[in-house]
């Protein structure tokens, strides 16, 4: 079936089977491999993307169900060459170790800050409680989100300065 949705501001259409999950639509049909695919059981949250601005586990939603909606993946976070303050915060505060949970964590943080620009630490911890960091690096993830909250209009690092 034809599935059309808006991904990172661009309308895309692909012909997929109804059983294809959103995570695989993003990774395989669109080649957006920044969305990671982890446990397959709705537990780990590494596949979190934003659908209409809300965090959703993309392994537990059909691509077909997402047709007509707006999806934001990690590839859509930066504004051109300027990183989102959340991305900048993860750089400043060492919010990632292996990086596997990072896209999902950053998108959940973005949604939290859009709703609540100055969250308390326990509100940050609650927001990311459905996502697992296999490096157990939660302390620095929380500090990264706090950095972003404190620098809402951060003079972001340009993408070319980000170490490869």
């Amino acid at each position: 079936m034809q599935v059309t949705m808006t991904v990172n501001g661009t309308e895309v259409t692909r012909d997929v089977e109804p059983r294809i999950l959103l995570v695989h639509y993003l990774r395989e049909s669109l080649g957006l491999t920044g969305t990671h695919w982890g446990c397959d059981t709705s537990n780990c949250g590494t596949c979190v993307v934003l659908v209409d601005g809300e965090p959703v586990k993309s392994c537990t939603q059909l691509a077909a169900m997402t047709a007509g909606h707006e999806v934001t993946t990690v590839e859509g976070m930066a504004d051109g060459a300027t990183l989102d303050p959340v991305q900048q915060g993860f750089m400043e505060e060492h919010g990632l170790q292996c990086g596997f949970c990072t896209p999902g964590m950053m998108l959940t943080a973005r949604a939290l800050l859009d709703r609540n620009p100055d969250p308390a630490e326990d509100e940050i911890r609650e927001a990311i409680s459905g996502q697992i960091c296999r490096c157990t690096g939660y302390a620095t993830i929380v500090r990264s989100v706090q950095w972003a909250a404190a620098h809402p209009a951060a003079e972001g690092t340009t993408a070319s300065e980000v170490p490869a």
């Binding site: 959703v56 586990k57 939603q61």
Partner: peptide
């Protein structure tokens, strides 16, 4: 009930 992301759906 579950976690905040699951509760969105």
């Amino acid at each position: 009930i579950a976690d905040p992301v699951v509760r969105n759906r």
